[in-house]
């Protein structure tokens, strides 16, 4: 009995310390900070000014909305691209190669995100590889700047997120019995019906968990919007960064951090409600 109790504490204490010291305590601290404001002499007092600023200053909440919309867009595009890829690996490709194909997908993740983003920059910039070839082929007469716009940013965000969507999809599609597809086909279903009535409903949990991960990673991404999106493409994480580092306004930054947390939670909650799922089932 004592051994059992000891075992419980051995496993419980690290988890508890981890959650409490690294997540709960800093968040409480940040939350308190977000509710305080500093006047010009440096005296702090309780107020909701930081939150009020967010709503009164259009640049803040416009960036906020933009970030949310682009993150949803990136999640959708990633799902649309990842689904056929996962389907090909699990159902179409020769089973002998499916492991190899999965490793190919994983390979870009052996280098850091920074290196991958710089890789894209080498390809896309004005004097980059793509421009060079287009000029050589005579398709364009003058170099085009392909960096620092929203389309490139979304593209690279999708690329960075692909794996996190493909992996859960691989495992749900793996568990889909081929005979279900055959049975539907035998009962007169077209390919489209099989996709919408059999394959997609079956893949829903994997699709949802992939979408949650991709959405959160995109929403919280700093590097890609900063490097590829350039100055004209604002991302909400950049606002938080600016408040903490550039303006030294930690109270404002903390408030923004909490707003981002609330936003991601809200959107995921709405997403789960719309697809009639619950979180515990999805993360299983």
């Amino acid at each position: 009995m004592a051994g059992k109790k000891l075992g419980f504490y051995v496993f419980f204490i690290p988890v508890f310390l981890w959650l409490f010291l690294l997540i709960v305590v800093p968040h409480i601290e940040l939350f308190l900070m977000s509710l305080r404001t500093e006047d010009w002499v440096g005296n702090t007092s309780w107020s909701l000014a930081n939150y009020k600023n967010f709503f009164s200053e259009p640049i803040y909440w416009l960036t906020f909305v933009r970030t949310a919309i682009y993150s949803i867009l990136v999640t959708c595009i990633t799902a649309i691209i990842a689904f056929p890829v996962a389907f090909f690996i699990t159902k179409v490709a020769n089973p002998r190669f499916s492991g190899f194909l999965a490793v190919l997908l994983l390979m870009p993740f052996w280098v850091s995100e920074l290196v991958r983003v710089y890789g894209w920059m080498i390809l896309l910039r004005e004097s980059g590889v793509i421009n060079h070839f287009l000029l050589q082929l005579g398709l364009i007469s003058k170099s085009v700047e392909m960096l620092y716009n929203d389309i490139s940013m979304v593209m690279v965000l999708v690329y960075t997120s692909m794996l996190f969507m493909v992996v859960p999809l691989l495992s749900v599609l793996e568990s889909l019995d081929d005979s279900l597809i055959e049975a539907a086909y035998d009962l007169g279903a077209s390919s489209w019906t099989i996709l919408t009535k059999i394959i997609l409903p079956h893949s829903k949990p994997g699709l949802t968990s992939g979408a949650i991960v991709v959405f959160m990673l995109t929403l919280g991404n700093y590097l890609t919007p900063n490097l590829i999106g350039g100055k004209s493409s604002l991302w909400f994480t950049e606002q938080i960064y600016t408040q903490f580092i550039a303006s030294f306004n930690w109270n404002q930054g903390a408030a923004f951090g909490f707003l981002l947390l609330a936003l991601s939670s809200l959107i995921i909650w709405i997403g789960l409600k719309l697809t009639r799922q619950n979180l515990t089932k999805v993360v299983q």
Partner: peptide, 20 residues
């Protein structure tokens, strides 16, 4: 003629009922 247009139906070994 593909299976979805043949006037035959198959009962599968593992039944293949749609769980959803």
């Amino acid at each position: 003629i593909p299976p979805n247009q043949r006037p035959v139906n198959l009962v599968f070994q593992n039944l293949a009922l749609f769980p959803m």
